[in-house]
Design a protein around this nucleic acid. Structure first.
Lengths: 207, 207
DNA sequence: ACATTTTCTTAATCTGCATTAAGTTTTTCT
DNA sequence: AGAAAAACTTAATGCAGATTAAGAAAATGT
């Protein structure tokens, strides 16, 4: 039987920074050598589905940026139930901000919902980057402010909307996630049990 | 009847920037002329209890910093109930971040819980400040990141704790606010009705 | 000082969502 | 392909917290 020859295996591989760099380029412009320095601080990693990147109790030392797949952050309550704080599809940063900033134990876990690829930066390198290249203060300020705006409105939604309204909201806000996520994860994000979400979706719909 | 002569009325008055400037000094150090420029962008205002500073639907054009009293931001749901997002005692910034950033109509209202004094900066001046004095990128990045960390954990608390636990949390986090706020406002912040909070506090306590 | 408004309390009733449990379908692993 | 695990569904029962209502206490305005 004939086999088509495989592509040669590369033992070094090109890190895929294009997404991250183009995201950064929307806010600041970098000289070639600035970019090179920045890139030198990055690490790459492939993670398998369900693999933990951060566990509650650890100190969060990495800023994770997703290039492929999807991560999530979540906390586990005293009854063992998981509550999703954030999903991170490609193009998103994800971390336990409180732990990163204060270097205290994290309350959040971070894991992969599907096989994924990430780029990450270590906290000391992050601090060094900001000292050496103050331009990045701007980029990360914008990032933090946008995230802050999002959390403000999400909190309001949580205080003032019903489960059904929160679900509709989620669908509108993250149409691509709705298609790719298990219902269970969506339920956890909007703050209901999987059983209730299932019932809600199957009794509300006019057949 | 004898009257003690009043202090002469000053028609200019010293703005009280000390709180704000010392807060800034914790993160960046300013030359005298830098400080002077920054101060030149600030405005001062006294607000009476219940006075609205931002109304839902308006575009939020001011970054407000509280020097005395207490402000709050809140949204009103379709049944007319208020939901408090944030309290701002002295030393805190308060704004509808989404509206400030995108210059779209705000979902939040901001008003004074008691007679207060604020310092505010206009959005165009804020943008100009950051362009002219990039140091401030650092200050506002730190601010935004801290706020973000706080909202992340608050969201988790909301997803995973009972009303009683959220109340206990609030007491621990903001002991001075608990003493000065009407119970009603606290109820709205933790996401329960005033009736339920009252019942909770008066039946849980062993007499 | 008194009238008005706002806040707090108590209690009865109601409901949105949780819990439990068991069965079914889909996905994942070997 | 077949077994195991994970995700989804359905239904009965339970409960934390909402709603409604009405009175008491406290704060506020004039």
């Amino acid at each position: 039987m004939w086999h088509r020859p495989r592509k040669p295996v590369l033992h070094y591989f090109t890190m895929d920074h294009t997404l991250l760099l183009s995201g950064i380029a929307k806010h600041i412009s970098l000289e070639k050598e600035e970019e090179a320095y920045f890139v030198s601080l990055l690490h790459q990693k492939k993670v398998r589905k369900k693999q933990l990147l951060l566990e509650e109790g650890e100190i969060n030392s990495k800023l994770n940026y997703v290039t492929e797949g999807c991560l999530r952050s979540y906390a586990v309550d005293k009854n063992g139930f998981e509550h999703v704080l954030q999903f991170a599809p490609p193009g998103w940063w994800i971390a336990d901000m409180h732990s990163i900033l204060t270097q205290k134990p994290a309350r959040l876990n971070i894991d992969a919902i599907e096989d994924s690829e990430i780029i990450f930066m270590l906290k000391p390198d992050f601090d060094a980057l900001l000292l050496r290249m103050p331009k990045f203060e701007h980029y990360f300020r914008i990032l933090a402010q946008n995230a802050l705006a999002t959390y403000q409105y999400r909190q309001i939604d949580h205080l003032s909307l019903s489960a059904m309204e929160r679900y509709a909201n989620f669908c509108q806000l993250y149409p691509s996630l709705i298609r790719s996520l298990p219902q269970k994860q969506v339920a956890s994000y909007i703050g209901v049990t999987p059983e209730f979400l299932s019932k809600m979706l199957n009794t509300m719909i006019i057949k």
